[in-house]
Amino acid sequence: MPQSNSTATPPAADKTPYADKVERLWTDSYGWVVSHSTQILIGVAIAAVIVLALLGLKRFGIHLCRDRENRGHWAFILGRALARTRLWFMVAVALQLVSAYADAPGFVSGTASFLFTIASVLQVAIWARVLILGLVEHRSVGASAEDAAAIGSAMNIIRLLVTVAVFAIATIVILDNLGVNVTGLVAGLGIGGIAIGLAAQGIFSDLFAALSILFDKPFQRGEGIRFDQTTGTVETIGLKSTRIRSTTGEQIVISNANLLNKELRNFDRLDHRRMIHRFGVTYQTTPEVLEAIPSMIKKIVLAHPKCTFLRCGMAAYGASSLDFELQYDIHSEDFEEVFTTNHRVMIAILKRFNDDGIEFAYPTQTTFTAAPDGTLVMPYAEPAAPKAKATPAA
């Protein structure tokens, strides 16, 4: 059988899946509009009211953001979040409402749900970012100019970290709603995050420690603190380290993370300071005088302003003294005032003891010698015997 020399006609090119979807969407939408016109009009009216309400909230948020003096307060933060409401989110909400109310066909409803999912996740991510950054700014309200400058420097890093974290989560949520298997992506992000965290562990630990100091405020610039064996005044709180001027004059630089791991004592936040003094009087002091010393010192302490007497009494028999302990509080946050008041109390006690002939003890040794007949020669004068009372004449 002879073969034909004619070439076969190539088949017509098939439509691409994308073109098929567009054509199907147009066909379904046209049929739906024709058959459900009343429901669509009602849905459009409801959607218009919702969109107008969202626009009103956005304008209200813009109005709250105009007062720059309240920056960092909750009203300003909420207003800034409302002002970030996007128009494409409003359109997606309207399409979803119309599709759900007017019983749209499957393909139209699926498209509306797809757009609504993406728009909602992105809008929530924008709101979350604004609120998180606003919370950071809210914690800085009332900070000093230097602390505010440090927070401003840290905000650039915080803004970058928050943006990356929020939109990474939003991307994963969108892909998961679209049916994409995000297990591998989540695992990859987790491994990458761990690697970055380990590489920059020291930097991030000091950064977050600095933010903890600035926001939690265990101490502020200019306050006196003590950690380990160091006592000084805070000069600067940086993103990496804190600089402290020691009482001996040198500047001490310590990393923020290391500083927060120590037990800190803040001397500028004391509502009172307790003074504890031990002193001794000589063993020659009579018991009557020893009993009178606590009440005597109590009157001296209470005579000074901002002083509260706690206790005073004999505490121990010392090697060369009868030891007393005095405790009282000075109610003042100013260390200079506390120091001056304590000085005046000590001087007043010394004057009173001198006036009453009460001797403070100091380390001494007493040597006893004996006469040729063995009689001890006392190193001090023996107290005179009391004189007998004269008998009245009959």
Rank of each mutant, 00 (worst) to 15 (best):
162 V>L: 11
162 V>Y: 11
162 V>S: 09
162 V>M: 11
163 T>I: 05
163 T>C: 06
163 T>V: 08
163 T>R: 05
164 V>M: 14
164 V>E: 08
165 A>E: 00
165 A>Y: 01
165 A>N: 02
165 A>D: 00
166 V>R: 08
167 F>Q: 06
169 I>V: 15
169 I>M: 12
170 A>Y: 05
171 T>V: 11
172 I>E: 08
172 I>D: 06
173 V>E: 10
175 L>K: 02
176 D>W: 10
176 D>H: 13
177 N>V: 06
178 L>F: 13
178 L>G: 07
178 L>W: 07
179 G>S: 09
179 G>R: 07
179 G>T: 09
180 V>Q: 09
181 N>I: 08
184 G>P: 03
184 G>R: 11
185 L>K: 02
185 L>W: 08
186 V>M: 13
186 V>C: 12
186 V>I: 15
186 V>Q: 12
187 A>Y: 06
188 G>C: 10
188 G>N: 13
189 L>W: 09
189 L>V: 11
189 L>P: 02
192 G>A: 14
193 G>F: 15
194 I>F: 14
198 L>G: 05
199 A>L: 15
200 A>E: 11
201 Q>C: 09
203 I>E: 13
204 F>L: 13
204 F>W: 11
205 S>Q: 15
205 S>W: 05
206 D>N: 15
206 D>A: 11
206 D>P: 09
209 A>D: 04
209 A>I: 02
209 A>F: 01
210 A>K: 00
210 A>H: 00
212 S>T: 15
213 I>Q: 01
213 I>K: 00
213 I>M: 06
213 I>Y: 01
214 L>Q: 02
215 F>M: 11
216 D>M: 08
216 D>S: 14
217 K>R: 15
218 P>Q: 03
218 P>H: 00
219 F>W: 05
220 Q>E: 08
221 R>N: 07
222 G>S: 06
223 E>M: 01
224 G>K: 07
225 I>R: 03
225 I>H: 04
225 I>K: 03
225 I>N: 03
227 F>V: 03
227 F>I: 04
228 D>K: 13
228 D>T: 12
228 D>F: 12
228 D>L: 14
229 Q>V: 04
229 Q>N: 06
229 Q>F: 06
230 T>F: 15
230 T>N: 11
230 T>E: 10
230 T>M: 08
232 G>D: 02
232 G>S: 04
233 T>Y: 04
233 T>R: 08
234 V>C: 08
234 V>W: 09
235 E>I: 06
235 E>F: 03
235 E>S: 10
236 T>Y: 12
237 I>N: 02
238 G>D: 09
238 G>K: 00
238 G>M: 02
239 L>Q: 15
240 K>H: 13
241 S>L: 10
242 T>A: 02
242 T>D: 01
242 T>Y: 00
242 T>W: 00
242 T>F: 01
242 T>R: 00
246 S>P: 00
248 T>L: 05
248 T>S: 08
249 G>Y: 12
251 Q>F: 13
254 I>S: 00
254 I>G: 00
254 I>L: 01
255 S>M: 10
255 S>H: 10
